[in-house]
């Protein structure tokens, strides 16, 4: 008996011949997207007492190549909501067009906009879930910022599997690891703390996190977009911001990987 548990009970090649694994690689009748191509990285969102702040950088990467550097990943819908897209850019464009056509149809009746951010989020989540159930996913991770049915600030996430959740601070991708812990300092009591967060606090926290992400996320850029949605339903969108107050002094100290081995 050999001492590799993984080998126990397996047929030995010298007796039974090598395993014929050809059936494992048989081609499927129809193939769908199995991986994203041109991608955007993290999206950040924070609720404050009168609205929501949302931000994403302007980079679209092709693998490790910084392929497009002026990509607008924050998109406004129905004049009162902003969606921040992470993940595949072509799927983002598809969803953009889909939501635009929805908005056009919504406007046929003359009683004004009726789709709020909550409605959009539900709609998007259902599309994501349908597509994952068809094994033809839309490779995105999105944040939806705006207002809910009662006109209160709304922030929610949806991803390629159709998973949804909502919190006073949200971050997708790398931001879930790096930014979310920093953003949560703003809201020690979750939803109960939102009333104590001002617009300036939220914006500053988001900007700081964008900087942290730029320091550590190799697929990020220092050009970013930031939008503020307020209770009045107004959107203040800035699409060509540059990170301020960068300091790479810390980089000097880093040892253990890269060119400095110790």
């Amino acid at each position: 008996m050999n001492h590799f548990p993984q080998a126990w009970g397996r047929p030995r090649d010298d007796i039974y011949g090598p395993y014929d694994s050809s059936h494992l690689h048989s081609s499927l009748p129809q193939s769908h997207t199995q991986s994203p191509a041109v991608t955007g990285t993290s999206v950040l969102g924070v609720k404050f007492k009168d609205g929501v702040v949302i931000a994403a950088d302007n980079l679209a990467s092709y693998g490790s190549l910084a392929r497009f550097t002026d990509v607008k990943r924050l998109r406004t819908f129905a004049g009162t909501s902003v969606i921040g897209f992470g993940g595949d850019v072509s799927d983002m464009q598809y969803l953009d067009r889909l939501l635009q056509s929805l908005d056009i149809r919504e406007n046929y009746s003359s009683h004004g906009h009726s789709l709020n951010a909550k409605n959009l989020h539900t709609y998007l989540a259902k599309i994501f879930y349908k597509r994952r159930s068809d094994f033809n996913p839309l490779w995105n991770n999105v944040l939806v910022a705006g207002l809910d049915d009662e006109g209160k600030p709304f922030l929610s996430q949806a991803d390629l599997l159709g998973t949804t959740f909502s919190a006073p601070t949200l971050a997708t991708g790398f931001g879930a690891h790096l930014a979310q812990p920093l953003l949560r300092r703003l809201v020690p009591h979750d939803e109960g703390s939102v009333k104590d967060v001002t617009r300036e606090m939220a914006i500053d926290a988001v900007k700081e996190c964008m900087k942290v992400l730029f320091y550590r996320d190799a697929r990020s850029s220092d050009r970013y977009s930031i939008a503020v949605v307020t209770k009045e339903g107004e959107i203040e969108m800035k699409e060509d911001e540059k990170l301020e107050g960068q300091s790479w002094a810390f980089a000097d100290m880093i040892r253990g990987y890269g060119t400095q081995v110790n």
Binding site: N2, F4, Q6, A7, R10, P11, R12, D13, D14, P18, Y19, S21, L24
Partner: peptide, 20 residues
């Protein structure tokens, strides 16, 4: 897994092929 796969080749088990 890949370590054992290397070993198992020497032993004559089809690990690298049978475990995708």
């Amino acid at each position: 897994m890949s370590d054992t796969a290397a070993h198992s080749d020497a032993l004559g088990y089809s690990f690298s092929k049978s475990i995708p």
